[in-house]
Computed example of a mutant assay.
Amino acid sequence: MDNLPIFTQRLILRPWEDRDRDAAWAMAQDPQVMRYLPPLTREGSDAMINRMMAMQAQHGHTFWAMARRDDGRFIGMCGFCPPRPPLVEYEIGWRLAREAWGQGYGTESARAVLDWAWAHRDMATIVAITTRANAKSRALMERIGMAHAPDEDFDHPALLETDRLRPHVLYRIARPKS
């Protein structure tokens, strides 16, 4: 499976397992975690995991489950997915449980995902998106070397015109030169 799981100093990024469902659902119940994301029902959370499992099976990568190495505790997700409308490039993304905030896990996992993507997939660039107001995700994008492409900001077509989350920003990083 292309050298999975991915191990960092403190984290394991791995394909989703059924045992992750309750922890992912608990994370989706935290209003601070979901502040910049559409709300999820339990069925929606399970469907998201099913999509991640299917993407892993089809493409060999997804937004992987993230666990701490020291105790194996699920603390979120980080990975990348193939282009899907409205995007035409591969997309990196993450979501962390609130208990994992402020400890550098987002940056550590995103850097590991970029390293894996460059080593195992042939793409020139990777993008990240978030709602305009999500300053913490935008700061993480900048910490991992992504640059805002303001002329490519967009209104997310999956969200209603009246949804406060609809305005999105796009950040991009190019494959490092060898």
Rank of each mutant, 00 (worst) to 15 (best):
Y171K: 13
M141E: 00
V169Q: 07
M141R: 00
H156V: 02
R164A: 15
L165V: 11
H148P: 01
L170A: 10
M146H: 10
M141I: 05
P157A: 07
E142D: 06
G145R: 12
H148A: 08
Y171M: 13
P167Q: 14
L140V: 13
H156A: 03
A139I: 01
D151Q: 12
F154G: 00
P150I: 07
E142H: 07
L165H: 09
L160P: 12
T162C: 01
R166T: 11
A158P: 02
A149R: 13
L160H: 12
L160D: 15
P157Y: 03
R143D: 10
L160Q: 12
L160V: 02
L140P: 04
F154D: 00
M141D: 00
R166N: 08
P150H: 05
M141N: 02
H168F: 08
A139M: 00
R143L: 08
H168K: 11
D153Q: 10
L170T: 14
H168N: 09
L140F: 08
A139N: 03
M146I: 11
A147R: 14
D153G: 08
P157E: 03
A139K: 02
L170E: 06
A139P: 01
L159R: 11
L159E: 10
E152R: 15
A158N: 11
Y171S: 13
A147C: 11
F154Q: 01
M141H: 02
E161I: 08
Y171W: 15
L170V: 15
T162E: 07
D153A: 12
R164L: 09
E161L: 11
V169A: 11
E142I: 07
D153L: 04
F154L: 06
H148L: 04
A147L: 10
D163S: 15
P167H: 12
L165D: 06
T162Q: 09
A158W: 06
F154I: 00
P150Q: 05
L159Q: 10
M141L: 05
L159M: 15
A139S: 05
A139T: 04
M141V: 04
H148Q: 04
L170N: 08
A149H: 07
I144F: 03
R164P: 14
P150L: 05
H156D: 07
D153W: 02
R143G: 07
L165E: 08
E161W: 03
R143N: 14
